Simulated scan of single mutants.
Amino acid sequence: MLSRTHRLTDPDSFRVAVRQGRRAGTSRLVVHLWHADEVAPARVGFVVSKAVGPAVVRNRVKRRLRHLARESLRDLPGSAVLVVRANPAAADATYEELGADLGRCVQRVMS
Rank of each mutant, 00 (worst) to 15 (best):
R104G: 05
S27F: 02
V81L: 15
V81S: 14
L73A: 04
V81W: 15
C105S: 10
V31T: 05
C105K: 08
G99Y: 09
R23N: 06
L76G: 04
A89H: 07
R64E: 09
S13F: 13
M110N: 02
W34S: 04
A24M: 08
A55R: 04
A93H: 00
R22I: 05
A51V: 04
W34A: 13
T94K: 06
L98C: 07
E96G: 05
R28E: 12
D75Y: 10
E38L: 09
R60N: 07
R7D: 08
Y95C: 12
L68F: 11
R63W: 01
R43M: 14
T9W: 02
P41L: 03
V31E: 08
D12T: 14
V39Y: 00
R28P: 09
S72C: 15
R63M: 02
L73F: 06
A80F: 05
S3A: 12
R104Q: 09
A86I: 03
V52R: 02
S27R: 15
A69C: 15
Y95R: 12
M110F: 01
K50F: 02
L98I: 10
V61M: 05
V52F: 05
L65R: 03
A51E: 00
G99M: 11
L73S: 10
T5Q: 15
K62Q: 07
R58C: 03
R104V: 01
V30W: 03
L102D: 11
R19N: 14
V48K: 04
G78M: 06
A90R: 06
L8D: 08
S79F: 01
V16A: 15
P41Q: 06
A93W: 00
V52C: 11
M1N: 07
E71N: 14
W34V: 11
A17T: 13
G99I: 09
S13E: 14
Q20I: 05
P11Y: 13
A100T: 08
R23W: 12
V39K: 06
A91H: 01
L76P: 01
S3E: 13
R108P: 02
N87K: 11
S72F: 14
V109S: 08
T5W: 08
S79M: 03
H67A: 15
A40F: 03
G53Q: 03
R74K: 10
H67V: 10
E71T: 15
R19Q: 15
R58T: 01
V47A: 08
N87Y: 07
A69V: 09
R66H: 07
V44Q: 10
L73P: 01
R63P: 09
R43N: 13
V56E: 03
A17L: 11
V47R: 02
R60H: 05
R22W: 10
E71D: 14
L8H: 05
D101A: 09
R60K: 09
S27K: 15
F14K: 09
V30D: 02
V109P: 06
V31N: 02
S111A: 07
R85Q: 11
M110K: 06
R4G: 01
D10S: 14
V16C: 13
A90V: 11
T9I: 05
S79Y: 00
V18H: 04
Q20R: 15
V52M: 07
P88M: 14
E38I: 13
E38C: 12
L68T: 08
V30T: 14
A86E: 01
L33C: 13
V18W: 04
L98K: 13
R64C: 07
P88F: 10
H67M: 13
V44K: 06
W34L: 10
A55Q: 00
V39T: 08
E97L: 11
R64S: 04
